Simulated assay, not measured.
Amino acid sequence: MAELEVAKSTKKIFTTAKSKEHSLWEKIKKIGMEVAIIVFAVSLSIGLHSWSEARHEQNEVKVFLEGLRNDLQKDRQEMLGDIEAYENQKKAFNYLSQIPKGTQADSDSINAHSKYFYSFTGYGGNTGRYEGFKSSGKIGYIENDSLLNNILDLYEEKIPILTISTDFYKNQKIRFAEYITENTVDYPEGNLTQVLASDPVKNRSNIYLSSVNQIIDNYRKCVSKIDIIIEQIDKEHPKKH
């Protein structure tokens, strides 16, 4: 529509300029009027285009945030489960670290804690939606600076720190499992209780306890940030019931 108005006004300008029926002053007034129409039409067209583009961008943000909210709610449940698992691992290695020197590990206690000695727990890395939106260059479409900063803080700082801590813990636990395997004979009736009560195991258990406390703290920081982000998304895009 704007293009049509511009074309019509442009044609009128040329026609008026060539006309011999109007005085110079009349030509100036008519041409000025048509130029004003052109400027208005172009400005209106640009404004409508910008509005339409901004509306489209914010619709993309809405879809992203609603999907992100679902992802974060699932991540939150996963992380709470991981925290519980690490609390249990903490208890297991706390038992090993406190076995009195010169004694053996208690068989019943070992059976109660054994599944936590070799299991691995870590954040599943459910970051696909965020990474896709960021790589497309659309993350800047989020107009709420506080919400944007919290999302970036979670995915660019807190989750990477959590991943580093759990990866370190996993590698140390592999070394722990290797030591037990290399020094245990006639499993399960052999010297396992002696190996688990040995100084190397007790020392490593103390290291694991320190790591576990840090990991739990990193998980809780992520959960806290997730709660803030979900609350902010709920304010902007309430769930439909």
Score class of each variant (00 low, 15 high):
125 G>M: 12
61 V>Y: 00
37 I>S: 07
51 W>Q: 09
125 G>L: 12
159 I>N: 02
241 H>V: 15
50 S>A: 10
53 E>R: 09
85 A>E: 11
24 L>R: 10
186 D>V: 08
151 I>D: 10
94 N>G: 09
198 S>Y: 03
121 T>A: 09
183 N>D: 08
89 Q>E: 12
195 V>R: 07
2 A>Y: 03
159 I>C: 01
46 I>T: 12
221 K>P: 02
58 Q>I: 06
144 N>M: 03
224 S>V: 14
224 S>Y: 15
182 E>I: 05
6 V>G: 07
72 L>N: 01
134 K>S: 08
109 S>T: 02
4 L>T: 14
207 I>S: 04
93 F>I: 05
158 K>R: 05
76 R>W: 03
85 A>C: 08
172 Q>P: 04
230 I>A: 06
113 H>L: 11
67 G>T: 00
209 L>D: 01
79 M>E: 12
189 E>F: 10
30 K>S: 12
95 Y>N: 05
120 F>H: 05
214 Q>F: 13
17 A>M: 14
217 D>F: 10
195 V>N: 08
237 H>K: 01
153 D>Y: 13
34 E>H: 13
148 L>P: 00
151 I>S: 09
175 R>D: 13
179 Y>Q: 03
178 E>G: 04
18 K>L: 15
157 E>M: 09
130 Y>C: 01
139 I>K: 04
154 L>S: 08
53 E>L: 14
41 A>L: 14
109 S>F: 03
4 L>E: 15
169 Y>E: 13
46 I>M: 15
210 S>D: 11
104 Q>L: 09
85 A>P: 04
32 G>Y: 11
151 I>R: 10
145 D>H: 08
119 S>K: 02
70 N>F: 14
162 L>W: 02
205 S>R: 00
28 I>Q: 14
139 I>C: 04
16 T>M: 15
50 S>I: 13
231 E>N: 13
78 E>M: 14
109 S>Y: 04
121 T>I: 13
196 L>A: 06
5 E>S: 06
96 L>H: 02
158 K>V: 01
190 G>N: 06
39 V>G: 06
10 T>H: 11
55 R>A: 06
58 Q>C: 04
180 I>Y: 08
223 V>W: 00
143 E>P: 00
212 V>S: 09
112 A>N: 02
127 T>K: 07
121 T>V: 10
202 K>N: 00
82 D>H: 06
219 Y>N: 11
88 N>C: 04
135 S>L: 01
20 K>W: 07
84 E>L: 13
135 S>C: 00
106 D>F: 03
74 K>N: 08
205 S>P: 01
13 I>C: 04
222 C>L: 07
31 I>F: 03
93 F>K: 02
2 A>G: 04
219 Y>A: 08
17 A>T: 06
216 I>P: 04
210 S>G: 10
73 Q>F: 08
54 A>H: 09
67 G>C: 00
213 N>W: 11
114 S>I: 08
240 K>R: 12
114 S>W: 06
138 K>I: 02
211 S>D: 14
141 Y>A: 06
86 Y>H: 03
195 V>C: 10
53 E>S: 11
71 D>C: 03
112 A>Q: 06
196 L>M: 14
101 K>R: 09
24 L>G: 07
84 E>C: 05
49 H>F: 15
76 R>N: 05
14 F>Y: 13
130 Y>M: 03
24 L>D: 13
63 V>G: 02
137 G>P: 07
202 K>A: 02
